[in-house]
């Protein structure tokens, strides 16, 4: 396969996103990363949940599976287990990831399949017109919380670290080069990687103005193998840090499954008929 440019990775389908949506930035960074990694589109599957960000798969030249709300991770796991040679990238929003689908993340971290999970995090449910999401701030006023929300937001990075996901990073859709680099690094990582990408909703929760002064790059001397230090950074409330918080290589799920099959088979693959004899 000859090297494809980022533009060649985009299909001709026009995204449904509002002009100025952070998700355009994510799509651009993704296609740049695919070009850098020279991924063969025929061996790539984009899996998504429900929400504005869930619309992404057909915008990329690849196979895609736009699934149900909150279940992107189990379905992505099935694809990876079904064919470990595929590059599997899961995408979705913060409602998908941390509300309805939040129960799957710890188990992805435990299993550690080589899947990149990009969460386009905007603190709101854009597609249902702006209700507060689990990452929206306390007191956020929306149609479903006219007096302000009474639940403080959760911290996706601290949560992923607590679950011991083997690659944890945060990006910003407005910093395209940096985001591209994070995606490339996540794709190089063997195991489950989660990138929480702050991707503002220009229509219902526009944070483009207030966000930039709060952002800071993770210090260059941060040791990504130091989980305790990563927690410290994640729990800081003066700054929102961008970059790789934590990276720890350990055996990937697909490799462990293969080991199990090899162990079960022993010397050679038994025929079905031999299994029957166990019941004679």
């Amino acid at each position: 396969m000859s090297k494809m440019t980022a533009v060649q990775y985009k299909t001709k389908i026009e995204p449904v996103w509002c002009p100025g949506c952070g998700d355009f930035g994510v799509l651009n960074a993704l296609c740049n990363a695919l070009s850098v990694k020279e991924v063969d589109p025929k061996n790539m599957v984009f899996v998504s949940g429900i929400g504005c960000s869930g619309r992404l798969p057909p915008y990329v030249q690849s196979y895609g599976f736009h699934t149900v709300h909150g279940r992107v991770l189990p379905i992505a796991t099935g694809i990876k287990v079904g064919n470990p040679d595929l590059t599997v990238i899961a995408v979705g929003g913060d409602g998908d990831a941390f509300a309805i689908g939040g129960g799957h993340i710890p188990h992805m971290a435990r299993r550690n399949p080589s899947i990149v999970y990009i969460v386009m995090d905007n603190g709101t449910y854009g597609l249902t017109k702006g209700q507060a999401s689990p990452t929206g701030p306390l007191g956020m006023k929306t149609g479903a919380s006219p007096y302000g929300t009474v639940e403080p937001p959760l911290n996706p990075i601290a949560m992923a670290l607590a679950y011991d996901a083997s690659f944890v990073a945060r990006g910003y859709s407005g910093k395209n080069k940096e985001l591209e680099a994070l995606i490339v690094r996540a794709m190089n990582h063997r195991g489950f990687s989660i990138i929480d990408v702050i991707s503002p909703c220009i229509t219902f929760y526009n944070t483009y103005k207030e966000l930039p002064p709060q952002l800071a790059a993770i210090p260059a001397d941060h040791d990504v193998k130091d989980r305790a230090k990563a927690f410290e950074l994640a729990l800081r409330d003066d700054k929102i840090h961008l970059g790789v918080f934590y990276e720890n290589e350990r055996p990937a799920f697909e490799d462990r499954l293969k080991e199990t099959a090899d162990k079960a088979r022993g010397a050679g693959a038994p025929k079905l008929d031999e299994i029957f004899l166990e019941f004679a």
Binding site: T77, V81, G82
Partner: peptide
């Protein structure tokens, strides 16, 4: 979900 993915 895993079954759907594997079938896909």
């Amino acid at each position: 979900g895993v079954v759907c993915g594997a079938s896909f």
